[in-house]
Design a protein around this nucleic acid. Structure first.
Lengths: 217, 217
DNA sequence: CGGAAGCGAGAACGAGCGTTCTCGCGGCCG
DNA sequence: CGGCCGCGAGAACGCTCGTTCTCGCTTCCG
């Protein structure tokens, strides 16, 4: 009644579709007005500027992706299946007609660290997904769940970029099979037939880096 | 005489630096004029439009990345080391101060399939890198070099996106370790990858060269 | 019924940008 | 020396876009 079909929601739906399909900079406010049927005056009294609308768009996408992921994963109980469900969800999304890459990677590349709020929203989303993956990785009993989660995160982003550019869903399949292999290899070294962890992971010398690498900011 | 310090090259260098750092749409032609010291008239008589300049910029980046990769890989003879050299190169690049993500992913996301020539250049680059990876994957004796190359390509793109967004080079490390795991797993042919026992042969102790060799900045 | 407030459509404004044009200067060849 | 050509600096033009303003119209309340 109140939070479902409000004006704000209609604006956000239209903005989402347009921003995501054509990019943020290519879509003007008048196009959002035409698509949403909400007058410019009301748009500006809901969102004080285009930048605020873009941030709201990203946060909406964040909520959407997170709940979709959680629902999809909740269908499985086996830890390995739960991780693979992430990549199955990815495949379904990527295979749909309205897939145009990762909205956050796109926005980040487009606005290139120029907008403070956008960078913040993108980092929040990516770190939330990573935290989610870390939980799944932990369930699998991986020796280093953080490391495995980072690898899975790399696979996710890479599959989205690759699928968007090549306009084909197969990168999701590649990522899925890679995830499976990585999971098996990351199993607790005591029982894993792979080489001991000392060999499995190349010595990673931590160079004196400027290093904001700590748990996100 | 003609291809080294010509006016065209100065324009391209300036455009490359600006486009890559700030994005294509955020950089106007006057800024390229100021940075290159070439008058607008001459810029437009070298490149008939900004779009043509953008395409030339992407093709230049493509040549740069390909030669850098080939040089870096040529330093090694062991097939596994040759693949890992790709990710070591990635780490060095990503760790540098002037890294701002993959120029092709950025341009593709920014212009969102709007420009024909840009899409073409991006696809050409990505498929060239994949072909290169396929050659390396074949050398390792992988059962399915195409599949392995696709996985490595996903890792590469994901690591670049991840590193750019998190502003840290560690995703390159994650990608490197994942690449090694995938290589080992792909070495055994005709075996269901469900069984992690796929390691047929322990990795030869590679001289620990994570990143120390960096003659070029 | 009357007035006031809210609303939609669209004009208006100012800024930025891609592209072209003008103008004044300097070099080259006869 | 003189006309011609190319050149650089910058103005100019047309367009887009974010944001605000104006103007009628509707609607609600006393």
């Amino acid at each position: 009644m109140n939070g479902d079909d409000t004006t704000e929601t209609r604006i956000l739906s239209a903005a989402d579709a347009l921003f995501y399909e054509y990019g943020v900079q290519s879509v003007g406010m008048d196009r959002i007005r035409d698509a949403s049927g909400v007058s410019l005056k009301k748009i500006y009294q809901c969102f004080p500027s285009k930048g605020a609308l873009v941030e709201a768009y990203l946060r909406r996408r964040d909520r959407w992706a997170r709940t979709a992921l959680e629902e999809r994963v909740a269908d499985h109980t086996d830890p390995e299946s739960r991780v693979l469900a992430v990549f199955d969800w990815l495949y379904d999304w990527v295979d749909g007609p309205d897939f145009h890459g990762c909205a956050f990677i796109n926005a980040f590349g487009e606005l290139g660290a120029g907008s403070q709020g956008v960078v913040e929203a993108v980092r929040e989303h990516k770190s939330a997904v990573r935290t989610f993956l870390r939980g799944l990785a932990f369930e699998t009993g991986a020796a280093d769940p953080d490391w495995l989660a980072s690898q899975l995160s790399v696979l996710l982003d890479g599959a989205m970029s690759n699928a968007s550019i090549s306009d084909s869903p197969t990168p999701a399949r590649h990522a899925r099979s890679a995830a499976r292999t990585l999971m098996h290899s990351a199993a607790t070294p005591a029982e894993a037939p792979t080489e001991p962890a000392a060999l499995r992971e190349e010595p990673r010398p931590v160079p004196p880096s400027p290093a904001t690498t700590a748990p996100d900011s």
